Amino acid sequence: MEPEPGPAEPGGAVLLTGPRLAIREFHHTPADVDALYAVFGDPEAARYLPFEPRDRETCADQIELYVEQAEADPRTGYRLAVTVLADDEPAYATPIGTAVLDLGDHRSATLGYALRRDTWGRGYASEITSVLCEFAFRTLGLHRLAARADPANAASVRVLTKAGFQLEGRIRHDLQLRGTWYDSLLFSLLEPEWGGPDGERG
């Protein structure tokens, strides 16, 4: 099943679907706040994220910012909710994680994702990455996607490599948390290198 991009006009609501997942705008509702807190508030789920675990109030504030970003014109990025496709209406199903495209200059963006811990190991991160690449290159017309990964996060490194991202290098002391400096691996994927949702390149 090929991802189906939703509208991408500035301020327009986005709904993307893959074989098993839907990626939609966040709503400022108790259910969405609880869902984001289940990811950002879990120290294990947030282990490789570039911030400390967040409390529920902070997650509520984050969603308020996501909603404002979705309504901005021009839109500077996409902070989206990931849900599992089921009988529920995907635009309102309970999120299991987040998907991110932060837009930059020169038709570029930074890609990211985070998932609730009990959904790990099901291939969802690879599907999110595939859907975001489809949206970025085919719908938004971007030329370059970048992604950062903690060198210890072998799962994310595998996801990015499988999607065709190339390792550009290691950024030393890229992030400081809890008094400790952490390196990052920088990956990128260019539109001419992308093989589409089926991953066929060349």
Rank of each mutant, 00 (worst) to 15 (best):
H173D: 15
T76P: 02
G169H: 09
N153P: 02
T98V: 14
V82F: 03
A22W: 05
T94I: 11
D150H: 14
L21H: 03
A38Q: 09
G179F: 06
D34Y: 01
D174Q: 12
L167N: 02
G195V: 10
V39T: 14
M1P: 12
S188K: 00
H143V: 06
D34F: 10
R158G: 11
R122P: 03
E191W: 11
A147K: 01
G11M: 03
G121T: 07
P10S: 04
T83K: 05
T98K: 00
A60R: 14
E134N: 13
R116Y: 02
D105S: 12
G11H: 08
T129V: 14
G141D: 04
I96P: 02
L65E: 14
H143P: 08
L65N: 05
T180K: 15
R148S: 14
L115T: 04
R138A: 15
R122D: 06
G77C: 12
L160P: 10
Y48V: 03
T58D: 11
P7C: 14
G11C: 05
A38F: 11
P53C: 08
E4K: 15
D88Q: 15
L167Y: 04
R75F: 09
D42F: 06
L80W: 03
L111A: 06
D150A: 07
E134M: 06
P3H: 00
L175S: 01
H106E: 14
L189R: 09
E4L: 15
D183H: 11
T29V: 02
A155H: 09
A31P: 00
D88R: 11
A154M: 07
F165G: 01
D105Y: 12
R54I: 01
D61A: 15
R170F: 02
G97A: 05
T110A: 12
F26G: 03
G11Q: 08
A35C: 13
R158V: 06
V67H: 01
G97T: 11
T129F: 07
R24P: 00
E193W: 10
A147L: 09
D150I: 00
T17Y: 00
I171T: 10
P43N: 06
G169V: 06
G195H: 05
T119C: 08
R75I: 02
Y48W: 15
L167Q: 13
Y48D: 00
H143G: 00
Y182D: 00
I63E: 03
A163W: 05
A31K: 10
P50L: 03
I128H: 01
P151T: 03
E2I: 10
G104S: 09
T161V: 10
L160C: 06
